[in-house]
Structure formats: structure tokens, C-alpha cells
Design a binder for these strands. Structure first.
Lengths: 207, 207
DNA sequence: GTCTATACAGGGATAGAC
DNA sequence: GTCTATCCCTGTATAGAC
């Protein structure tokens, strides 16, 4: 959090209300009036603390990015089977998305809606942390001989993170499918895909 | 397409303009005025042909779903290696998302923004086609002994489709990462993940 | 720092002429 | 079926009192 403490309490309420509403209804679907009402301040007060609606949105977004970027460290344990190490990462990652639900949704929205400048911002803030962290782990595993040389680490990272992200965003839809019984168990899903991926990229046949 | 031919040409222009704008700017970010302008008709004309903004949106969305639902058949070839069959499916799927770019974006938006009723609609229209098609293929492969029994077919399907969807929606961000060199080659990505997944779920060691 | 009141633009939607 | 003109509301943002 980059929030200073000498700011009045109302600023915090505005930011929280904005985060909730932006994440639920999107930027265009959220009005300053609604935010002001939820934060129990007047519209003018919102504009006193934030230059514009867009400035407020960016502020909220930055907080979400920081929160998300900080939870990566130490996610991958130092020892154990490839499958278990990947599984721990995937399971934690998906639960973090759940826990930071609103921030996750904000960021997902930006992935779709954001223009190129915005996407660059996320690439640098969020993606570069999560992605590169996972990436270097896979590269290390290649060098140590656990992972086959002919797999592209970036593809593996995208595969794992992408499946997790998709699970998060589509679970409302997935649970309508009869054959999908895991929609209420994110961590389980994370471990299941890790198992498949680990088998898929492993050099040693550890069945 | 459920479009009747006895409708005036302007209706088609309205629908096309709406599809473009809704997919680029979202429902709330798109005004009827903007649609009317792009379709070269008056606002009142839009309301003459469509009951409300929401009705127009749903119509556009339905077309997108139908277009998408229809391209599934025959995607999985009858013969060949598991890896190649999955690869063909994934490659075609990801290219279809590119080709139907606007429709894909519309549907992705709904995955995030839609309420429960909407998500049910997609589950029945789009997901049930793509997902179940892939699902039954994996189940068949389990019965014929190509795929291990301890993998959940639904997880495999989600893994593959999810990675593809994530690639589509995040490629603007991914291309900002130095280590990701596949962002301009969707089909390649589809094949690469199929290879990993096929290895991961295969019973026979076909390396 | 907080409010009420207001300016002004644009939103969705309708009336009624042609 | 298409238009212009209009209604009414809500949007962002500001002015100015306290």
C-alpha cells in the first residue's frame, strides 16, 4: 500500500467503495454518485480528493496490482517433486485470486478492455512478477535436468497461469456444466492441472 | 444466423456497428447514438428495430454464440496420435477465436460481467458445445486406453480451452514480456500446449 | 475537508411528420 | 421505415458557502 496515513478516513472509504463498484460493474458502469453514496460522502468530496473519475480508477487499479504483485515471493518451495512444487504454486495462485477477488476482477477487466498503454502497465507490474517467477523456476528445472529441453518455459507458464485465470473467471459458467464437479474447489483444480503439466514436461518418468 | 431476409438493409448495418462497438467498448461504454452514427441511421431508427439497448445487445450476443457454437463439429480428426488430434483441435480453436475476434471478445466480456442468468445462457450455448465435444473425445480416449484413467476429463478440457482463451485475451499483455516470443503465433501456441498436455495425460510413453 | 447547488453535456427513449 | 425534434434523467465536473 502506498497510502499515506495523514489522509482523512473518507479517502479510504472512497477507495474501497470504488474498488467494489469498479470490479462489479466496470469503469463505465460505475458512476461517481454511486461511489460517493457507498462511501457516505458527497460527490464533490470525491472530486476534492481525486482529480477525475479516471484518476480514481487508476489509483484503485494500482493498489490491486501492488497487492497482487507482492504475494508471489516464496510461492515455489525449494525441494520436493516437480509435480508438488508446481502444485503448490498453482494452488496458492488460484486461492490468492479468490482471496483478492475484487482486485483480480479489476485486473481481468483491464486485460480485455485496456488499451496498449494500460496493458504495458500490467505487463510490468503484475505479469512480470508472476510470470517471470514461474518462468525462472521452469528454466532452472530444465538446467537441473528435471524438465525436458524441448519445451518452451514461457508456454508452460502461460498454460498454468492461463488455466488458473480461466478457471477463476469462468467458474460461474463452468458450474452449469454437469460434467464439471470441481467448480467449487479451486485449489483442487490447481493441483490437478499441475499434475498433468508436470507429467507433460518431465524428463523422468515418475509415474 | 437467424436473420430473416425480409428485413431492411439498415438492420444489418445496425447489428454490425453494434457488434463492433460493444466488443470494443463494452455495453456501458457504447451509446445508441454512437451505434446509429456508425450504422448511418438515426437513433430513432435503432429504436424502431430494437426494443431497447439491452435487446440489441442480446441479439448481437446470440449471433456471436451461434457463430461460435457451429464451428466445433468435425474439429477432432478420427485418426492419428493423441498429440496431433489434440493439437489440431487447439490450433483450430485458437484461430477461430482470432477469426471471430469481435464475437470472442463479446463473449469474454460476458464471462466476467454477466450475471448468473447470462452465464447460464453461455453455458448452454457455447460452453456445452466446445466443452462437451472435447470432453467426450478425452473420455473416448480413456476407454480406448490412450489416456490414463486417473485424469479428470473435465480438468483436461478446462486446461486446454482455458489456456487458449487466456492466450487470446492476454496476448496484448504477453507481447510486452521479453521471454514470450509466441504472442504473434496463436496456432503455434495451441500446438505447443497440446503437446505438453498429450504427454501429461497419455498412458503410453510415446516420446 | 465537507457540503449544497448548479452547469452543461450526453445518455436512453418517445412523438409525430413524412 | 426513416427522419427531426424533444423529453427527462443522469453523467462528470465545478463554484462557492461553511
Amino acid at each position: 500500500m502506498t497510502l499515506q496515513n495523514n489522509k482523512p478516513e473518507s479517502v479510504g472509504r472512497i477507495l474501497e467503495a470504488a474498488e467494489i463498484l469498479f470490479s462489479e460493474k466496470g469503469f463505465e458502469g460505475t458512476s461517481i454518485s454511486a461511489i460517493a453514496k457507498a462511501a457516505k460522502v458527497s460527490k464533490a468530496n470525491v472530486y476534492h480528493h481525486f482529480e477525475s473519475k479516471e484518476a480514481l480508477h487508476i489509483q484503485v487499479l494500482k493498489s490491486a496490482c501492488e497487492d497482487f504483485g507482492n504475494i508471489v515471493n516464496g510461492l515455489i518451495s525449494d525441494t520436493g517433486l516437480l509435480e508438488d512444487r508446481l502444485g503448490k504454486f498453482a494452488g496458492t495462485h488460484i486461492l490468492d485470486m479468490e482471496r483478492r477477488n475484487r482486485g483480480t476482477r479489476l485486473i481481468l477487466r483491464e486485460l480485455i478492455e485496456g488499451d496498449q498503454n494500460r496493458q504495458l502497465l500490467f505487463a510490468e507490474n503484475v505479469a512480470s512478477n508472476h510470470f517471470k517467477h514461474l518462468l525462472s523456476f521452469i528454466q532452472d528445472s530444465q538446467e537441473s535436468g528435471d524438465v525436458r529441453e524441448d519445451v518452451d518455459p514461457a508456454v508452460v507458464a502461460t498454460l498454468l497461469l492461463g488455466a488458473n485465470v480461466f478457471f477463476f473467471m469462468a467458474k460461474g459458467t463452468l458450474q452449469n456444466l454437469d460434467d464439471f464437479t470441481l467448480s467449487d474447489n479451486p485449489a483442487h483444480f490447481g493441483h490437478a492441472i499441475s499434475k498433468i503439466i508436470a507429467h507433460g514436461i518431465s524428463k523422468n518418468k515418475t509415474e
